[in-house]
Amino acid sequence: MGVFCTIVPPHILDRLARSADGELAATARHTLEHDARHRTRRGLTASVGPAGAAAAGAAKALTDQPVRSIYDARHRDDLPGHEVRVEGSAAVKDVSVNRAYDGLGDTFQTYLKAYGRHSVDGRGLPLVASVHYLKGYDNAFWDGEQMVFGDGDGRVFLDFTIPIDVIGHELTHGVTQYTANLTYQGQSGALNESVSDVFGSLVKQFTLGQTADEADWLIGAGLLAPGINGVALRSMKAPGTAYDDPHLGKDPQPATMAGYVDGPDDNGGVHTNSGIPNHAFYLVASALGGNAWERAGQIWYDTLTGGSLDPDVDFTGFAAATTAAAQDRYGDGAEVQAVRAAWTTVGVTSGAAKAAASELPGQQTGQQTQQA
């Protein structure tokens, strides 16, 4: 079953919904109401699962080109909306349509060229996206079948088609759906979110031709409106530092297990605790250097698609699986050593006393448990 996965964490929208600014509060409440409605729909309706997708995909030959369809929702809740651009057609005047089209293509090409994967299901699944969803909708999501983008309110969030990593992030929820199918709750849910951040960042890096050292390791850079004190929704390099703003609050992501958030909100803190495995991946990529989608990304891809993960896997189990994947592909060399060191640094495996404060100058990881 596909899950309803949004790029903006509920805790940000909850804070905006309590804003003294009536316009911002109303927009956030509207977004939260629609998100809750979609979550209910996904809970009642099973999407095409891995077996169904395999059967559907087996009938057509795989190609090295995506099959994209972009729709204009025309600020309504009727998905997918009006078809405005299809595969191979020329760019249109609507920049949101063109950005969505390009972002779907860039994500497809990253998975194909880096990992030999044809689309999110591995069998050439057509990629569908709708832009201009509702009025001022402050989110983007994968609903188990397609991508949906809001225009943002223009005061806190801009158009959600702007950051390519947001598109890569959401489509990776589809990849996870068709592979490990990680349960969207607790630590497995945080891993689900983290995997999407990892490959969302790798899609951006691959598209821009950036090395690990050149990458910004931000998720959603360019999404925050002018005047908002922040650089993105999340930072993989320095979790907890992406924003600190009167409207948004302070980024609550922990970089290590010392700041782990335990509670019922956001399916057990899936968008918050994802900072821990996010930081582990950044440490692996940084240690190995070069192009992060190669060795570091390959290890994570092998782990996600290898069939060894339990849907309810926790951080410790995922650490063991990535270590095994590194060993299987690269042997007992720099790769497996980098993976082991990263999980120890973030406090998931033995050596947890090394709280990794030195990795984040000026950041007090133990004080990141306060929700915005």
Rank of each mutant, 00 (worst) to 15 (best):
S235K: 05
A280H: 12
P252I: 02
L309K: 09
A296Y: 03
D332W: 08
G307S: 08
L288W: 04
Q327Y: 03
R295V: 01
Q337G: 13
A319P: 10
T305P: 11
G240E: 08
T256V: 10
G297Q: 11
W300S: 09
G240S: 06
V284K: 07
G269T: 02
V284I: 13
D244C: 15
G307C: 12
G249I: 02
R329Q: 12
H247A: 15
Q298G: 12
L288F: 06
K237H: 14
G317K: 09
D262M: 05
G331F: 09
P264C: 01
F318Y: 15
H247F: 15
A334Y: 05
H247N: 13
P277W: 02
G268P: 11
D245H: 11
V284Y: 06
Q327S: 07
G263E: 00
G268S: 07
L288E: 05
N278T: 09
Y282L: 07
N291K: 15
D314M: 12
T256K: 08
M257L: 04
G249A: 01
T272Q: 10
G333E: 10
Q253M: 12
D302E: 13
A280C: 12
Q337I: 10
N278C: 14
T303L: 08
H271K: 11
H247R: 09
G290Q: 07
A258K: 15
A324P: 03
L233E: 03
A321H: 04
S274T: 10
S286I: 00
P252A: 01
I299W: 01
G275Y: 08
A242M: 02
D251A: 14
G317R: 12
P277F: 00
V270N: 04
A319S: 11
A242E: 00
G317N: 12
T316E: 10
F281V: 11
T272N: 11
G275E: 06
D328N: 14
D262Q: 13
I299A: 13
R295F: 00
G333C: 08
G331W: 05
L309E: 09
A320N: 09
I276N: 08
A285L: 10
V284S: 05
W293R: 05
T256S: 15
L248A: 07
Q327I: 06
A320Y: 04
Y260G: 03
W300I: 06
G240W: 02
R234K: 13
A325Y: 01
D266N: 13
W300H: 10
E294M: 05
P239H: 10
V261N: 07
Q337R: 14
G331M: 07
A280N: 11
G263W: 02
H247K: 14
G268Y: 06
I299T: 14
T303Q: 07
D310M: 04
T303E: 07
L283I: 04
L288T: 00
K250Q: 05
L283V: 04
G297N: 12
H247E: 15
F315H: 04
N273V: 04
G333V: 12
A325Q: 01
D332R: 13
L288Q: 06
H279S: 03
A321T: 03
T256P: 13
